[in-house]
Design a protein around this nucleic acid. Structure first.
Lengths: 336, 336
DNA sequence: GTGAAAGCGCTAACAT
DNA sequence: ATGTTAGCGCTTTCAC
């Protein structure tokens, strides 16, 4: 931490007491106008900046919120982060970010980092490992400390706290409906994230929707993106498929590439919809129609709830906000 | 901030003094083994967590570094952030992130947020507005406060501090060389960021390289991505171009789309290279050959320098690290 | 109108 | 081996 001039220094310079300086700088009416100005001038000339650590210790409020995300290289989380940052800034809060990198250990460490008084509350999306292992000790601990907490997107049913989730089921359901309305009769579901709760919800929505249309579910699960080209080529050669719903935007983009390789024209021969409205979808060729989760908005909502909670504006029971998805239409689906 | 049990509470419970508790918890040899254990047990049962704010106030070190980036939705900055986070975590530091959103005002506010003792040092990339306006008051102020600071990528020559930059000039120069070696004779430079220092360096490298090849520089500046399709179509119709070097990956992807629209085959008729090795480049069709800036590595290096500086491991003079670029070859350039 | 003093939670030099 | 005390920088009650 760099060297600093303190209230004491200013008091010495001004020949007054520390408390007078403090009051003057905080525009207390107790202090006379000219003393106040004199002190302010001195502070100015010394480049005085009040020490926030000391203030926080005194006020028991840090005006910062902690955010834990599983990965910073997933665009969805960045957009959420952007939303959080906007809302936080607007309401006078800073954000501290920790990455769990999908690991339970790092997630627990991050919680511990926050629990010690450095933030007023926490926003997080659960690490994949934690979702699998179902070991929630660290969250129970933070709950015991009365740390205000809101989970978003990847949430834990077993933990009581505020939550913001995406209606992935309905998103997939509506996407199938959208394709069907465009005339698609053989809709395939491409799922590279079948091992996550989110991937599962999307699959469920797809199955429910196609069943309602009297189509057989046709699901291709891949464990890695590199498998997509081969898997789809096999499908194209053996079945007649006229639409693909992909569980994320990367697989949607790769599906388009595979289709082109198999001489299928998009959207004439094949319609493609992906999940997540990100850069890859936008810059794909053709640009991708996607199911948008309103990531930025999720961030704003989560931060709004947390700050309301911190500031005591919420009643005791946890809030549970479900954000609806929306289809963003581009050129990978027929325009009728 | 949530309610907390303090050293004082523990002291009362154990029937000893506060300092005894403090020493016991910190494994001081001054305290007897059984007292120590007894105190630790009590602390454990109370879920005691030491207050970090109080510790920071005392130790005058926060073990956290501040990061200011111009935008969180630019993948390059995320990768740098990822690198910073890794290095920081490894060395026992946390990171606090502020976004300037390319605005000088928000940048100055962020600096002020950090200058007040909440971080031990700052890593930043300069906001576009600041680069244009050349108003550096906030940086001079932080320098006056002896705040350790390292700038990366977008740096200010007029400010004295540690710096990590990318050799954009050489990166562009080498890309032209690479294209020329592949047989390209008419290389166009597509620049959507000509108003930034980085965009300028890349242009300079291009100009230098083509001049050395006795080609006339052929530069298309666009102020918005939406202009690219039209601008390039005009070019394709009136000139014979066999390669495009784009100053970022988005414009490279859009250049490919424009080429396809004009019935040019990539890479047979036209080679394309972009700057920045991101998702869009990876998932483009064909996948893009790019100039990689090793973003993650830049983050690691910047954090390493900052922490060395904070910990007094560096001599006075500022370090100035230039990171070399590398060409990542994919399918948008001929493979000979 | 100004100052003295206490205290936020913690650490550490200095007693005992 | 344990306790007393002072102090990090600030705010805030209470005296003068």
């Amino acid at each position: 931490m760099p060297s600093k001039t303190t209230l004491k220094d200013l008091a010495n310079l001004a020949g007054v007491s520390v408390s007078t300086v403090s009051k003057a700088l905080n525009d207390s009416p107790e202090i006379g106008a000219r003393t106040r100005q004199r002190i302010k001038d001195i502070a100015e000339s010394c480049n005085y900046v009040p020490n926030n650590i000391a203030r926080s210790l005194k006020s028991r409020s840090t005006k910062t919120i902690g955010v834990i995300i599983p990965a910073i290289l997933i665009e969805f989380f960045n957009k959420v982060l952007y939303g959080i940052e906007q809302e936080a800034t607007e309401r006078g809060y800073k954000i501290v970010i920790c990455l769990s990198n999908e690991s339970s250990r790092k997630e627990a460490e991050s919680i511990n980092t926050f629990i010690n008084g450095s933030v007023d509350g926490v926003i997080l999306s659960v690490a994949e490992e934690t979702q699998k292992s179902k070991v929630y000790d660290h969250f129970e601990k933070s709950a015991k400390h009365n740390m205000p907490m809101v989970m978003f997107d990847r949430v834990l049913d077993d933990i009581t706290c505020d939550k913001v989730t995406v209606d992935d089921f309905e998103g997939a359901f509506n996407a199938v409906k959208f394709l069907s309305d465009l005339g698609s009769k053989n809709i395939l579901f491409l799922n590279p994230i079948s091992n996550t709760s989110v991937g599962q919800h999307r699959e469920d929505g797809y199955v429910k929707a196609v069943s309602g249309l009297n189509q057989e579910p046709n699901i291709v699960n891949v464990s890695h993106y590199t498998e997509i080209e081969k898997a789809l080529s096999t499908v194209f050669n053996n079945q007649k498929i006229d639409a693909i719903l992909a569980a994320d935007e990367y697989s949607a983009a790769l599906a388009q590439n595979a289709a082109r390789l198999n001489n299928l024209k998009i959207p004439q021969d094949l319609s493609v919809i992906g999940f997540t409205n990100g850069m890859v979808a936008e810059y794909a060729n053709p640009s991708l129609t996607v199911v948008s989760q309103h990531a930025e908005n999720i961030g704003k909502i989560a931060a709004g709830i947390l700050l309301d909670r911190i500031e005591g504006k919420l009643r005791a029971e946890p809030v549970n906000k479900v954000v609806k998805t929306k289809i963003v239409e581009r050129n990978s689906t027929k325009n009728i």
